[in-house]
Design a protein around this nucleic acid. Structure first.
Lengths: 189, 189
DNA sequence: TAAATAACCTAGAGGTATTAGGCAAACGTA
DNA sequence: TACGTTTGCCTAATACCTCTAGGTTATTTA
């Protein structure tokens, strides 16, 4: 029988594409096998199980996203860096909804520790260097930015901003202004 | 055969409990049938299908959450109202993780329009009355608050804030301070 | 080129979603 | 109270999806 040449990496990539096409929750071992023209059982030589496959897609998405953010951040500082970071994040979510959803998968401690999630938090901290915040304010600000960006992207994708004439685009840009202003005048405890 | 006395509402409530116990994504028709000691097929007289069941749970959660927020908001204004709103939101998510996840389900336009989601956005606007923002700033602020609170609660539940000694509690309270300050001095375009 | 390895297959068990059709309990009514 | 109707729950059956065990064959390597 002709061999297709499967391996964990090809499966992960194809799984990510599938996620963007039909939604991360609809990525199944069966659907992926179908896409390669092989039987379901054949995939189990390459990935441990369905959960393992999903985790791999999540890790791939985290890496890709971190790469993009890193590229966007290069050579920028202050509000410029803030906007570049935020836009890289939002654009990725819009271009790759399935992958973005995958990146939200809850990883266990060990997996998270070794994932690009670490790069993400380091890069967020890097942005804040332009704003001169001492600990624990910096940690609080990291969490604020992470929450706001993630929350915004999630709500936008869910269509929550479609009920008023104000575009998601315009609000986004004003929110970046507002966060920049906030970081420059971070209230002391 | 003894009748258990099922109906859509009891199923929805039990489904919500199940969601809190085992996670919203693990709420299945089978699991719910098991819980009532009946066959899977029996549930289909009361809910159209699995999707319908999940939507009902989502709508229930939205109502409950709106009720809580409304109660928390009563008689408060300004930062007091902001904190009450935010805490009601976060507390609900912590007490009812499954229901909170359900409330995030993407509803179609029609369902959203008739759901408590409308009350939510009205209440968010009510908070902002204490801050004197004109349109479109008010809409932008509504979106900022929604994004930040939702994002924070989601990331906290995912364990994203467990990797540093700073508690999620402390950061939360500082973020409320920061948002309050930001709303009071919202930057003009 | 024979042995070892790896890639894919068949078979099958078990779980979930859903439809169709049946029987019996509960209810309304004469 | 008996009778018909409604409706709650059941059985049966189809269709996917997940995953394991064990086999066959293509490819690699000694």
């Amino acid at each position: 029988m002709a061999r297709v040449g499967l391996n964990a990496e090809r499966l992960t990539r194809a799984g990510a594409e599938l996620a963007d096409e039909v939604g991360f929750d609809k990525v199944t071992v069966s659907a992926l096998a179908r896409r390669f023209g092989v039987k379901d059982a054949s995939l189990y030589s390459h990935v441990r199980n369905s959960q393992d496959l999903k985790t791999r897609i999540a890790l791939l998405a985290l890496e890709e996203l971190a790469d993009r953010v890193a590229a966007a951040l290069a050579g920028r500082a202050g509000k410029d860096a803030l906007a570049a970071f935020a836009n890289a994040y939002r654009d990725y979510a819009r271009e790759h909804p399935g992958r973005y959803a995958a990146a939200q998968l809850e990883l266990d401690y060990e997996a998270a520790r070794n994932s690009a999630a670490v790069r993400h938090s380091r890069m967020t901290r890097a942005i804040l260097r332009g704003y001169d915040l001492a600990e624990p304010d910096e940690t609080d600000a990291v969490r604020l930015l992470g929450s706001t960006f993630h929350g915004y992207v999630t709500l936008e994708r869910a269509g929550s901003f479609q009920h008023t004439p104000r575009t998601a685009e315009d609000t986004w840009s004003r929110i970046l202004d507002a966060l920049d202003a906030l970081l420059r005048t971070w209230p002391t405890a």
